[in-house]
C-alpha cells in the first residue's frame, strides 16, 4: 500500500446545529490528483475547507473527526495553523490575486515567513510561475499589477502564489469554474504538470474535468461520501447506483 499523506476519518461538520457532513472517510496517496465531485450543496467545499482549517475563521462551525497530515493531527491544539496552511495550500474559485504586482503576489508567502533575500525570492518566484505555467506570459512585466491580467492568468498567478510556499498538498475549490474554456484548459494543463510533485485535491462540478485530470474521484451527495475510486473505474463501472445515476446525468 502506498504511503498516505493525508487521512480523514469520520468527519462530521456542523454549521450551528445543522450537520453538513455526516461522517466522511477518505485517504490520499502522496502525489496525484483526487477530484471531489457531486451536486452543489453536497458538502465538497465544506469538506475541503476543513482540511486546512479554514473553518477556524467562521464562528459557529464545529469540526469533528480525525484528520492526519503525515501522521500529525491537524486539529490538535498544538498544531500551528500558520505552518499547516503553508504545507496545505489552497486555491479558490474566483481568481483572487492581491492588488499588488505579480512579483509581490507570488513572493507574499515567502515574505511573511521572513524571507528577505532578493536572490532567493527571485528564484522562487520564477520557479513557482514556471510550475504554474505562466512564466512565459508574464516574465517581462513581473512588476505589473496582477489585476491587469486576464482571468485565467490571474488564476495561474494564484496557483503560483500558493506553490511558492512549497506546499505538499494543494486544495483547489472549483479553480476553473469562473474561467472561459481556453483559460480553464490552461489551468488544467498546469495541474497535470504538477501531479508528479504534488498532492492535489480538486473540487469540480465538471465531470469531464474530473475524468480528464484526476487519478481518483470521490463522489459526494447530501453531506455523505457515496463512493471513492480510481477515476477510470468510477466513470466506467461505479460500485454504487447513485454514482452511476449522477455520472450519467440522471440527477444533480
Amino acid at each position: 500500500m502506498a504511503e498516505k499523506i493525508l487521512t480523514t476519518e469520520n468527519v462530521r461538520l456542523y454549521y450551528g446545529e445543522k450537520e453538513a457532513l455526516h461522517g466522511i472517510n477518505l485517504d490520499y496517496d502522496k502525489f496525484g490528483i483526487t477530484a471531489l465531485i457531486g451536486p452543489s450543496g453536497s458538502g465538497k467545499s465544506t469538506y475541503l475547507r476543513a482540511l486546512n482549517r479554514m473553518h477556524d475563521l467562521t464562528d459557529n462551525v464545529t469540526v469533528n473527526g480525525t484528520f492526519l497530515f503525515k501522521g500529525q493531527d491537524i486539529y490538535a491544539p498544538s498544531t500551528d495553523t500558520v505552518e499547516l496552511r503553508k504545507d496545505i495550500g489552497m486555491v479558490f474559485q474566483q481568481p483572487n490575486p492581491f492588488p499588488f504586482s505579480i512579483y509581490d503576489n507570488v513572493a507574499f508567502g515567502m515574505r511573511i515567513s521572513g524571507e528577505k533575500n532578493k536572490a532567493v525570492l527571485d528564484e522562487m518566484v520564477e520557479t513557482s510561475l514556471k510550475q504554474a505555467a505562466i512564466w512565459n506570459e508574464v516574465k517581462d512585466d513581473l512588476h505589473k499589477s496582477a489585476l491587469s491580467l486576464s482571468g485565467g492568468q490571474q488564476q495561474r498567478v494564484s496557483i503560483a502564489r500558493a506553490l511558492a510556499t512549497s506546499p505538499e498538498i494543494l486544495l483547489l475549490d472549483e479553480p476553473t469554474a469562473a474561467l472561459d474554456p481556453v483559460s480553464a484548459h490552461a489551468v488544467e494543463n498546469t495541474l497535470m504538470q504538477l501531479r508528479d510533485k504534488l498532492t492535489m485535491i480538486i473540487v469540480t462540478h465538471s465531470m469531464a474535468q474530473a475524468s480528464r485530470i484526476s487519478d481518483r474521484t470521490a463522489f459526494f451527495m447530501n453531506g455523505d461520501l457515496i463512493e471513492a475510486n480510481d477515476t477510470k473505474k468510477m466513470f466506467l463501472d461505479p460500485d454504487k447506483k447513485e454514482t452511476q445515476d449522477y455520472i450519467s446525468g440522471r440527477f444533480g
Binding site: 486546512n52 479554514m54 475563521l57 500558520v82 505552518e83 499547516l84 496552511r85 503553508k86 495550500g89 489552497m90 479558490f92 474566483q94 483572487n96 492581491f98 507574499f108 508567502g109 511573511i112 515567513s113 494564484s158 502564489r161 500558493a162 510556499t165
Partner: peptide, 17 residues
C-alpha cells in the same frame, strides 16, 4: 474583499500579517 483575507490566511499569514 473578503477573499483577500481568506487567501492571505490560506497562504499561512497570521491575522496580524
Amino acid at each position: 474583499p473578503r477573499h483577500y483575507r481568506e487567501s492571505s490566511l490560506a497562504l499561512g499569514a497570521t491575522r496580524w500579517q
